[in-house]
Amino acid sequence: MLINADFSQRVSLLPEQQQWIASPQSGVERIMLDRIGAEKARATSLVRYAPHSHFPRHYHPGGEEILVLSGTFSADDTDYPAGWYLRNPPKSGHQPYSDEGAIIFVKLRQMRADEQRHVTIDTNDKSSWQVKDNREICPLFTDSSEQVMLQRLKANEPLFTAPISGGAEILVLEGELIEEHQVYKRRSWLRLPIDVAPLIKAGEQGATVYLKINHLSAIIGAEVAGV
């Protein structure tokens, strides 16, 4: 299965374009944002757990990245309410479930093979945030191949001030982004290819976004090399 699998192309999905599809596990649905592979895939998705739904214990050979968007996501008897960021490295495993129901943003099989750190960050905690270049940023993860963060933009503030050399991925968490006549409301998802300089700014109420940058160079390089 290939969904938005050409990483040299720009792609965006507005909330009204997103469709929930049942997963093989009862009570769990997903919106496939990009995907390479069948059930065991390199994938970016929104996943919705109905109350009292679960997955059996399983392992992630290529790692798993999660941002809890609503409700409470749980794994191995630990609860993660909305706002928690989790990063489970390659070869780790867990048994996920939700008693009250939850929606999470999930990226599978997208980590370096040598990544070893487990990361858990409560982005609701003020101490998780810092001010850099007059912008509020919540750093989530950084290595040589990617940077992951949340950013809070003021009204009409541009998201980027220079070309994105290694590409970018954006999920609108609060407020809205505007690009010319296009409005990206809450839960809009965008993936921008390398070396573009989009004129995207926050709306009148500002915006909070999940942002991953510089990760597409390695993917496109591997495709060119035939890996």
Rank of each mutant, 00 (worst) to 15 (best):
D79C: 07
A38S: 12
E223V: 14
W189M: 00
N134A: 11
P139D: 06
R109K: 07
S188A: 12
L159R: 07
T120E: 07
C138S: 04
A225W: 07
N88P: 00
V68F: 12
F55A: 13
S23D: 08
I3Y: 01
S188P: 13
P15G: 13
S217T: 11
R191D: 05
M149K: 09
L190D: 03
E180S: 14
D99M: 10
V119D: 01
R117W: 02
L190I: 08
E180C: 12
R35D: 01
F141V: 08
H181S: 10
A162N: 06
N88G: 05
I219F: 13
I137M: 12
Q147I: 10
K201L: 07
A168Q: 03
H94E: 11
I121W: 00
L14F: 12
L13G: 01
W189N: 00
E157W: 07
I213G: 00
S98N: 09
A222S: 10
S188I: 02
G101C: 10
G221S: 04
G203I: 02
D114G: 02
I194G: 05
A43F: 02
L86E: 02
D99H: 05
A43K: 07
S26T: 06
D195A: 15
R30A: 04
P90D: 04
N134G: 12
A41I: 09
V119N: 08
S8F: 09
S217C: 13
I170R: 00
R117F: 03
G226I: 04
A168M: 05
G71Y: 01
P139Q: 08
C138H: 00
G37T: 11
G62Q: 14
S144G: 10
N156P: 03
D76F: 14
D122M: 10
V11K: 09
H52L: 14
A22F: 01
H181G: 03
I170D: 00
F7N: 02
K212V: 09
F160G: 05
Q9C: 14
F141N: 10
V11N: 12
Q147L: 11
L86Y: 01
I121E: 01
A218N: 01
H54Y: 04
P198C: 10
I200F: 02
E179V: 08
L173V: 01
D76W: 14
N156K: 15
R112N: 13
E204K: 11
G166I: 03
D125V: 03
H181K: 14
A113G: 02
L14Q: 10
R35Q: 09
Q18V: 10
P15F: 08
N134Y: 01
I21E: 10
N124K: 09
K132S: 13
V172W: 01
A75V: 11
S98E: 09
M149E: 12
E176C: 15
F141K: 05
I103M: 15
V224H: 13
Q19R: 04
I31F: 05
V68R: 02
G101S: 02
A113H: 05
A82C: 05
D125L: 12
G206S: 06
D143W: 04
